[in-house]
Computed example of a mutant assay.
Amino acid sequence: MSATGHDYAITRTLDAPVEKVWAAWTDTESYGRWASAEEVVLDVRPGGAWSSVMVIPGGARIPLTGSYTEVVPNERLVMGMNVPGRDEPVLMALDLTPDGDRTKITLSQTFDRAEDRDQSEQGSNMLLDGLTRFLAAA
């Protein structure tokens, strides 16, 4: 546990160059396909808004909104997600490191409660599983 709360970091190495991984996260059509999202809007710039409707196993639809706080193409993307009942968005950092024709990707977040961290970590693993499948099929 960090001094500010409960955090996690998931790191994987993907079989795709960093530019392809970046495009998968920042291209509306690509993101919708691998993230099981519909109605995707991505304005990838600092202060730009994003929104989507996540379709989770079982068919439930969860609308999500937020904005980008940091954008460094092919390196770092920090996204804030609006959460009902919270004054400040929950931030998620995506860091990319080239490894030849592969990419090391790290997703990280910090939460006030362990339960929130655990739920988000599970969701992030599902996202990375979908991204891995998408990149393998591309």
Rank of each mutant, 00 (worst) to 15 (best):
V41L: 11
I56T: 08
R61A: 03
T4E: 15
W22T: 01
T97H: 11
P63I: 00
M79S: 13
Q122S: 11
Y8H: 07
E38S: 08
V71D: 04
V18Y: 09
P84R: 05
D95T: 11
K20T: 14
L131C: 04
F111S: 10
R113N: 10
P98K: 02
R113P: 12
V83H: 06
T13D: 10
D129F: 03
V90M: 08
T132E: 10
E39S: 13
R12G: 06
A114R: 08
L128A: 01
P63H: 03
P17Q: 05
R61I: 02
L91Y: 06
H6C: 15
E39R: 09
L94P: 07
E115A: 14
L127T: 05
P63R: 01
D116R: 03
Q119N: 13
Y8V: 09
M92L: 15
A3R: 00
L64T: 09
T97N: 06
E39V: 05
V55T: 00
A49F: 12
V40C: 05
R113A: 14
D15F: 04
S36W: 11
E121I: 07
S124A: 06
N82P: 12
Q122F: 12
M1I: 07
A60G: 08
E115T: 12
R86F: 10
L64N: 12
V71I: 01
H6Y: 10
R133S: 15
G130M: 06
G48D: 05
